[in-house]
């Protein structure tokens, strides 16, 4: 898991920012943000969305420990109306 590799001292320092791609648009986040932090940031409780990072599905239990990295491509998907 990426969390285990996270250097502990970084959490104590002023956070650097990283840029990811969220649904194709650039989004700036504090370094060491988890996928669940991103969901909270955009106002989703995460219950009705599917999440992918770099084309891989990240299931709900993994979102809190999946740390986003510079340049990650994140997709957050919902069920919309369709026939």
């Amino acid at each position: 898991m990426r969390l285990k590799n996270r250097p502990k001292e970084i959490v104590q320092k002023p956070l650097k920012m990283i840029t990811i791609q969220l649904n194709g648009e650039p989004e700036t986040l504090p370094e060491t943000s988890a996928l669940s932090d991103l969901l909270a940031h955009i106002g989703s409780d995460g219950k009705t969305v599917a999440t992918l990072v770099n084309e891989q599905v990240v299931r709900p239990p993994q979102r809190a420990v999946h740390i986003l990295m510079e340049g990650d491509r994140v997709e957050i998907l919902v069920f919309a109306g369709g026939g």
Binding site: N23, G24, A50, I76, L77, V78, A80, G82
Partner: peptide, 14 residues
Amino acid sequence: VALRRFNREQLEDD
């Protein structure tokens, strides 16, 4: 239903 990207301006799409 249809799978679509989350849109923070159109939360009612969910």
